[in-house]
């Protein structure tokens, strides 16, 4: 299992109120799986995503990523784990506006200590792979939404992680660019990456082989089928 959650509880404090975002979730995701996580707003989808992506630690229970329990890791060990194992794709793209497409893609490799020339070389390759070989030096503001999301996907692949986590990756895109992004992500899954997608879009969600339905911080059902 590349991802394993055991009875995970996450409680936030919002001022004086305690919010129970996850109330006891157990889930196993095999390597190379294509998973969609669906559910209404406030069901705990993003919280689950943050835990799987080692951005956050659980309040209770255990989260294993590639066999490592993240519950007790220091900030820096978590950073190393994210750097090596996880690639994030966000709804808001979250590219750095003052950097070019190439520099955005190279960023995770910078943190991983890859040499400048190797970074540039790989970033170019990745951008060519997502079909942006002619947009290397464009800033995010000079790119369309679909192009930006493809830069973000290239960035997610920078350190060749096991897991791609996509949080509403098509949420800010029109139908055709959204579909291009979906197809690109599925291509990565075919190449062996574990793909976890949070989505509101039932059509997108149905494409996954493993579908997790969340409500009120609990798993309401897991469906499996052949998918695409």
């Amino acid at each position: 299992m590349v991802i394993k959650l055991e009875n995970v509880v996450k409680v936030y404090r919002l001022g004086k109120v305690r919010v129970h975002a996850l109330r006891g979730i157990s889930l196993e995701i095999p390597r190379g799986e294509y998973v969609s996580i669906m559910g209404p707003s406030g069901s705990g989808k993003s919280t689950l995503m943050n835990l799987i992506g080692a951005l956050d630690r659980p309040t209770g229970g255990r989260v294993y990523i590639d066999g490592v329990d993240i519950s007790r890791l220091t900030d820096d060990r978590l950073a190393v784990l994210r750097r090596k194992k996880v690639g994030f794709v966000f709804q808001q793209f979250n590219l750095i506006g003052k950097l070019s497409a190439l520099e955005n893609v190279a960023l995770p490799m910078w943190f991983a200590g890859v040499s400048r020339s190797a970074r540039v070389h790989r970033a170019k390759q990745l951008l060519e792979m997502v079909g942006l070989g002619n947009r290397l030096h464009h800033k995010p503001a000079e790119l369309s939404g679909g192009e930006r999301q493809r830069v973000a996907i290239a960035r997610a692949l920078a350190n060749d992680p096991e897991i791609i986590l996509a949080d509403e990756p098509t949420g800010n895109l029109d139908t055709s660019s959204g579909m291009a992004v979906i197809q690109l992500l599925e291509k990565l899954n075919h190449m062996g990456k574990t793909l976890v997608v949070v989505t509101h879009d039932p059509e997108f969600g149905r494409r996954a082989r493993m579908r997790v339905k969340l409500r009120d911080g609990l798993i309401r059902g897991i469906d499996r089928n052949g998918g695409t």
């Binding site: 951005l55 994210r82 994030f88 979250n94 995770p108």
Partner: peptide
């Protein structure tokens, strides 16, 4: 973003 992409 820096932290999510692996900055310590």
């Amino acid at each position: 973003v820096l932290k999510a992409t692996g900055a310590s």
